[in-house]
Simulated scan of single mutants.
Amino acid sequence: MTDTAMADRIENGAGFIAALDQSGGSTPKALRLYGIEEDAYDGDAEMFALIHDMRCRIMTAPDFTSDKVLGAILFERTMRDTVEGVPVPTYLWKNRGVVPFLKIDKGLEDKENGAQVMKPMPGLEALLADAKAMGVFGTKERSVIHEANAAGIKAVVDQQFEVAKTVCGAGMVPIIEPEVDINSPTKAEAEAILKQEILTHLNALAEDEKVMLKLTIPTEDGLYVDLADHPNVLRVVALSGGYTTDDACERLARNPKMIASFSRALAEGLSKQQSDDEFNAALGSNIDKIFEASK
């Protein structure tokens, strides 16, 4: 069984989910946007230490609390690390009232039929057991759809729900993330196909198999309202997908029953070179914008 207080917070709370789960491939870009060039560190250990410092700065900021932030998605290294001497999942929930999630995918396979499915996840059951023991509520797993190819979209959704059932079996709630590329020339058509595939799988879930959906903000406003109303869905959240913070928030505000789960848009304008006051003001402004768009 999932933690009842966390489940109630996610299903009924006001706010958004922060994505703090940049992995090995996306970390250099995230650090560069934060004002740290690749020649400033040597090897993965130093790189991950720097990104952890950035995440700690975000998690300990005055505005990063349950007042506006519902949950946070963590990279595995972050989950196993500490903030202010406290294990990160414990700190988030006990000190901030923020529900912890874990990114579990290992990256993407090459494009086939206009889509990228997830790479194999060896040791998934052991990782889920560790995460559960550390107080993590749910997971997140990402695929990418590049075009309106029915076979490719079906492969993505089939795999996502197969993994989701494993996560549910471990007593956790999966965030299913079949991202549609915002630059796809057939974005709207792909989203229509995706919605139907998701509905087919949702209707096949057992009553106690609860999931969340993390979707690109749709071209057609309100497209995913009935997914949010499905009895097996705790929440539908939106990824920023490369939109600027202002653009992502403006688009999200037009979509009822979707809340934000932003990564790059959350960290926009943040810099290692900023004083704590400057950093906290910039982060607070982003949090306010994302919170308002998620209402």
Results as ranks from 00 to 15, higher is better:
C168E: 06
M118H: 00
P120M: 11
K103L: 09
N232H: 15
C168Y: 06
L127Y: 01
T216D: 08
G114N: 08
K106A: 12
I175G: 01
A150Q: 14
S184G: 07
D105A: 11
D130Q: 15
L223E: 01
L223D: 03
V157Q: 12
K132P: 00
A115R: 03
L108I: 06
I176T: 07
N149E: 12
E191S: 04
D208P: 12
K103R: 15
G169Y: 13
K132E: 02
Q159Y: 04
A131D: 02
Q159T: 07
A190I: 01
I193G: 00
L205Y: 08
L128T: 00
K111H: 01
P174Q: 11
A188Q: 04
R142Y: 07
C168V: 15
V225A: 13
I153Q: 03
G123S: 05
L234H: 10
I175L: 10
V167E: 05
M121A: 02
N183M: 10
T219I: 11
T219V: 15
I182A: 04
K154S: 14
I145P: 05
N149R: 13
A150P: 11
Q196Y: 00
N203T: 07
E189S: 08
M212P: 11
V180C: 11
E197C: 14
D221E: 14
D221C: 08
T219P: 00
K195D: 01
D208L: 07
K132S: 09
M118Q: 04
L213C: 09
S184Y: 08
T139D: 07
F137Q: 09
L128H: 01
S184H: 11
V98Q: 02
L102E: 10
G135H: 09
E162P: 00
E189H: 07
D181N: 13
E191P: 03
E209K: 14
N232F: 00
P174F: 10
P185H: 09
G222P: 07
H201T: 00
T186E: 11
V211Y: 12
K154P: 00
A133H: 09
A150L: 07
A115K: 06
M172V: 08
I153P: 01
L227G: 05
T166W: 02
P178D: 13
L213P: 10
L199R: 14
V157G: 06
